[in-house]
Design a protein around this nucleic acid. Sequence first.
DNA 1: TTTTATTAATCAATCGATTAATTAGTTTTG
DNA 2: CAAAACTAATTAATCGATTGATTAATAAAA
Lengths: 217, 217
Amino acid sequence: MKMEKDKTDKKDHILDVAERVFAEQGYDGASTRMISGGAGVNMAMLNYYFGSKEGVFLAIFDRRISNFQAVLLSIGNDESINSWEKLDKYLDNYIDKVVTNSCFHIMLNREISKSKKTDLTDQITDIMMKNVNVFLNIISEGIRKGDFNKDADQQLLVATIFGTKNYIINTPHISSKVLGYDVLDTDVQNNLLKPRFKKYMKTLLKAYLQNENDNNK
Amino acid sequence: MKMEKDKTDKKDHILDVAERVFAEQGYDGASTRMISGGAGVNMAMLNYYFGSKEGVFLAIFDRRISNFQAVLLSIGNDESINSWEKLDKYLDNYIDKVVTNSCFHIMLNREISKSKKTDLTDQITDIMMKNVNVFLNIISEGIRKGDFNKDADQQLLVATIFGTKNYIINTPHISSKVLGYDVLDTDVQNNLLKPRFKKYMKTLLKAYLQNENDNNK
DNA sequence: TTTTATTAATCAATCGATTAATTAGTTTTG
DNA sequence: CAAAACTAATTAATCGATTGATTAATAAAA
């Protein structure tokens, strides 16, 4: 048997670099020469390992999504906690993940933001809809149980949750100027951005979803 | 003097097509042959009129932004109305414009969502920051005057306003699935999306910015 | 006639992908 | 155990296609 460890490490390293280059330059803007050059491997290795440029792109996906979605799904299905607690847990986990893997989500959202439908946009849409549906279920369940305001616009609330996240992560040049610090800096993300973002999002949702009569929750 | 009318019409037509192609394919994904072919003109005309591919891109900008930003700025500087009314007017005008010119904003946001800084990202950042600053001024003024909750996170509110818009407009495949109708369809935009979006945004902001003691505004 | 607009043909550069040749690593065989 | 045989990994060179841009020639307009 061959040295499986080294090979996996090497493939992982290539995907790390590719993820960053795709985020920096976009899928079309990134060339296989940039990626292979950045990873310090021969260009032909990309095709040897992943078949094609698109194969590299999809391999980055496989590496990130499965575990992530499983966690969110388990929160949505947890019957031991109420709707408000589900919302809290969902936000905590979601914000942690997307901020930490910002390169991946920049890459992801750039490729879905083409108005033209392609196989790739369809695939990305399916992936993202899973996270959206978990969130929608939490909200609709909360409304059904009377925990949340029944007049809330669930669908546009989705746009606010994921849109606010996208704005911070996917347009880092703007959000960094607005917020006053570099949102792509790891230390900033962990010490400043994540706690601030979580607190804000929960406050915002509480203000909007709270029933009008029970003002002191 | 030459027939200025026809020439302007032709240039405008090219920019119309280019705007759509850039939105569909992204800047790198769109070729000058797609644009010239779609507009029914010789490829060399693009360089003759606009100098280069990037020249076409920037020409699309010039056509859209100046008038738009002037309107928003005048709302921000209007001293005859209070903060809540400013917020309302800003949202009405902003949502109308960005939904109507969705192709432009898809194109715009795709190119700013590269983590790598370039001349182009800097230019787009400057343009977008103007709209952001008008909004920030309205919020901070409202807080200063005591109209809005002083504990509000102004900067993250920016992320919510523009992020929610981006989510609906820039990821149309997802938002169309979530909302249940095609957000790129003109009729849908005017009859369903715009009024719904405006109402939601105002309700959301009211819930978040309202001072805790005055519940009946 | 002079300026402006438009065309077809072509430029060098770069793209993703493939090739054939070579090295490294593992397994088989005498 | 070591030589041979085989498989996997890696390289440099190159493929045809496409990219944005330019040219020189022509047509239209002033």
